[in-house]
Amino acid sequence: MTAASRPARGDRGDGAGDRVAGAGDRGYPHGGGRDGASPPPADASPAHAAVELCGIRLRHPIVNASGTFDAIAARRVFGDELVTRFPFSAFVSKTVTLAPRQGNAPPRLWELPAGLINSIGLPNRGLDGYIEHDLPELARLPVPLIVNVMGFHRDEVVRLVSELSARDEVAALELNVSCPNVETGLVMGADPGETARLLDAVRPLTDKPLIVKLTPNASDVPAVALAAQRAGADAVSLINTLRGMALHPATGRPWLGGRTGGVSGPSVRAIALAQVDAVRAAVDIPIVAMGGVSSGRHALDLIRAGATLVAVGTESFRDPAAGERIAAELAAEQARVAPPRGRRDAG
């Protein structure tokens, strides 16, 4: 099956979300501009480069990284402005597991020089809770919905994929393979064979695009990407967080409730670029790239390395509207440079 054979999705992306502010209106220190609270006129920025991922049409190449933006909570905090200025061209859910999860004991965060270690532990309502509570609200966003799922057992992933792919609200699925298979003890995404067996089980269950989110904590990431492509993945996304640790300054014991956590933010940007470059050399399917992106320039780098879409994660914590600024900065960068070699159609 090829991605191109699917009908185009994402028509909802043409709606209210079209108004995008220019690069100069955000006050963040490492952001674009210095001044001003009021958004600039809607057409102050260069036209966005529309893109397509596996047949899903998107208004621009910037999406959120899974687990770094809760559109439902943000709607409560920012009201309708979140929807009329939705910063991303698609919304990626936080990882959904079959059973509900509380997540790890606090503390869950440790700040790094230019980054963060998190040990959140994938809290979520579980598949049924997600479908009942979250899906109806997320379906009202002005952009297509990509649902990120993870299972501790192949059968769990099978149920997640089959139930979610039956939902019209869902445009695509992202498989988070950064967790151990309880049967084999192997991290699914750290081993090409495990990854292939997982895809063999779920690929036949859905016509929707399947994006495999690779873990950077693997000895041969391009080999895993290639195994995913051969087993029918439509795209790969990378990088997830890198394992890291911090000790309590006073007691010397692990600070994080989960003992170790995942490192994200600008401190992983160079690693993300190298892994995207290596994966691009190994596979032909589209890449959703992420890791430390905090400006349009960083997004352009990943696109030049071969990415179709770029996800913004930790930077949204510093500015909830970072995605909007980065999309505008990227459009300005792309208008300045020749068309990047990495932007290509799906499939």
């Binding site: 770094t68 997540g103 606090p106 965060l109 998190n118 909830p320």
Partner: peptide, 26 residues
Amino acid sequence: SGMACGFGACFGCVVPTRDGYVRLCV
């Protein structure tokens, strides 16, 4: 509690309550 985002995005700021963890920022 330690907060990264302040708007419910990171799930980092949870505190235990009688009905489980809640995000202190939202």
